[in-house]
């Protein structure tokens, strides 16, 4: 029981981060059908900028805010200088552009920061909470709470505001969105900005648990992508579900089989989804009558 709970909490914690990455994928995919493989770099930037600002003496909350702002600036630049100029290119081309951008961002990060692993102090101490024999890090609760807040906040924004409706409208029918006067370029810029902020927040919250370095983005992008595929790409609820499931699978695979194969789980999931369930668990619902 104690071991089960231990693995459960570890799985939920990384799962929450995968969910945030998958949510970023979903937002951009909905607005443009582009899979943004630079998504993991936003997580890296969130962690690394916070670490270096904190080391330079900036108080932690301010360092975190700065990191989010830097990631948003990078996300908006990615849209403005890499995606926007390639307007009219095929989706595959745009996806390759994002892969290039991710390599570029990683390269810059390696020069600006360094190649070492870095940690942040946990936000509210390292004293584990005891629950039925399992030890739970308080930071895990920060990760879970933060992720939940993002998910709920984003949902409210999309459902309750006119601009949120415009984002959903662009996802549903781009031509019609342009014809009602929605500036779809701005919607896509917004998607990049928000995805970057969400990714960065995930990176900040999880760095005290998992450490960070300039190179963590690649694997996170692939795992977030696996999570989005599992949940059904383009579906925000699916993204969160896929992320949490993937985190749990990884955690239990590491605990019960071997931690050597931990990273393989995501790729096995991608393959299984592609073979057996290409639409994912909550693939696009089609309600359209012609």
């Amino acid at each position: 029981m104690a071991e089960f709970l231990q693995l459960l909490f570890a799985g939920l914690t990384v799962g929450a981060v995968y969910a945030l990455v998958a949510l970023g994928f979903t937002l951009i995919f909905q607005a443009s059908e582009v899979v943004n493989f630079a998504q993991g770099e936003f997580v890296m930037l969130g962690g690394m900028v916070t670490v270096f600002a904190f080391k330079a003496g900036v108080p932690l909350p301010l360092a975190a805010l700065l990191a989010v702002l830097v990631a948003v600036a990078v996300g908006l630049s990615l849209h403005r200088f890499a995606i926007e100029p390639a307007k009219g290119a095929t989706v595959v081309t745009l996806i390759i552009v994002t892969i290039g951008a991710s390599i570029f961002i990683r390269g810059i990060a390696q020069i600006v920061f360094d190649k070492q692993f870095h940690a942040l102090p946990a936000f509210s101490g390292d004293e584990p909470l005891r629950l039925l024999g399992a030890a739970i890090l308080p930071q895990s609760l920060w990760v879970l709470g933060g992720a939940a807040l993002v998910v709920v906040g984003l949902r409210l924004f999309m459902e309750r505001t006119l601009f949120g409706a415009a984002v959903r409208a662009t996802a549903a029918n781009r031509l019609a969105a342009e014809l009602v006067g929605i500036d779809t370029r701005r919607v896509l810029a917004f998607a990049f900005g928000v995805s970057a902020a969400i990714g960065a927040l995930g990176g900040i919250l999880v760095t005290p648990v998992t450490l960070t370095s300039y190179a963590v983005g690649t694997l996170l992008a692939l795992k977030g992508f696996a999570a989005a595929m599992l949940g059904g790409i383009g579906n925000p609820v699916g993204a969160v579900l896929g992320g949490v499931l993937l985190g749990l699978l990884e955690s239990f695979a590491a605990g019960w089989i071997s931690s050597t194969y931990k990273d393989a789980v995501a790729f096995v999931v991608i393959l299984l989804v592609l073979f057996a369930l290409p639409q994912g668990l909550l693939g696009r619902r089609a309600i359209e009558r012609v």
Partner: peptide, 9 residues
Amino acid sequence: EGRQLFAPL
């Protein structure tokens, strides 16, 4: 043409 509504909304 074809109405082009935002079907899920």
